[in-house]
Design a protein around this nucleic acid. Structure first.
Lengths: 150, 150
DNA sequence: AGTGAAAGGGCCACGAG
DNA sequence: CTCGTGGCCCTTTCACT
């Protein structure tokens, strides 16, 4: 688990991951090497899994966003779903969930036609029985990033 | 809009935002200053909104994740929903959507009891009529981060 | 955890295509 | 207008205290 110092370091990195160790050190009251040692340890233990860029999807031409509930055939393993979905660049996040659906995938596409095409291809996957999707009208809130890169 | 070079630079930064400009340059066939100039321009135009750390929620003690569909009372504006939800640290993302629900919020909590408490508080908001939530069983995939910091 | 020195990256001004 | 080069300075990183 993390102590207070680690948490403040992570918070500083969440705001700007390219901030220098000296800067962070001044913020939390540590020297630059001390901060680096803690960050290295956080990476080693898996608390920090990496550093990434924060992107404006619209500016990149990804204007259409949606969530796709995926209903799978019986006896589909999470690994099968993962391998099936990670091949789509448009799928930026996916999880297995409780409730009616088996998994939810978050999809970014350039426009409606693109979104529809991706949806059709996912629905055509052998492990997929049916899908139900909702489109995002407007993003209200986005905080930080979680998980590991693929 | 972005050309091929910019897209490859963003991709490289998505994998590791602390990678050096020289490294990225080697990857895309440019010199370090050329890469920096392009990154600066991408930040200026808003395509890149920042750099952040990728965190393992479980390692930080956020073991319980879920999506909350929110059904609002009639005539609730997106701004009202945003202002209502941004006060919850546990809500890491939210959007208005098409379909049955009016909005979907992504929630991280330390455990089930915490999740339930947040859910009850959200359900108690004056603009909320009812909620329906699904719990994440296992994250399968997470790609990059989008949007602006709060 | 802090200090100092060596290596490497960021960043600016300039010249070339 | 965009890229590459060279040089300075700050940051990272390591051994040592």
């Amino acid at each position: 688990m993390l102590n207070d110092l680690d948490e403040r370091i992570v918070h500083a990195l969440a705001e700007d991951a390219r901030r220098s160790y000296a800067d962070i050190g001044q913020l939390v009251g540590l020297s630059a090497p001390a901060v680096k040692r803690r960050v290295d340890r956080l990476r080693a233990t898996g608390a920090i899994t990496g550093f990434t860029v924060r992107v404006d999807p619209a500016a990149l031409g990804w204007e259409t966003e949606g969530f796709v509930e995926i209903h799978c055939r019986r006896n589909t393993s999470p690994e099968t779903i993962q391998r099936g979905l990670e091949r789509y660049q448009e799928v930026v996040a996916a999880s297995t969930v409780t409730g009616d659906a088996d998994a939810i995938a978050q999809v970014f596409a350039s426009d409606m036609r693109h979104f529809e095409r991706v949806l059709e291809r996912i629905a055509g996957e052998p492990f997929v029985e049916r899908t139900k999707s909702v489109l995002v009208l407007s993003p209200l809130l986005r905080r930080f990033s979680s998980g590991s890169p693929t």
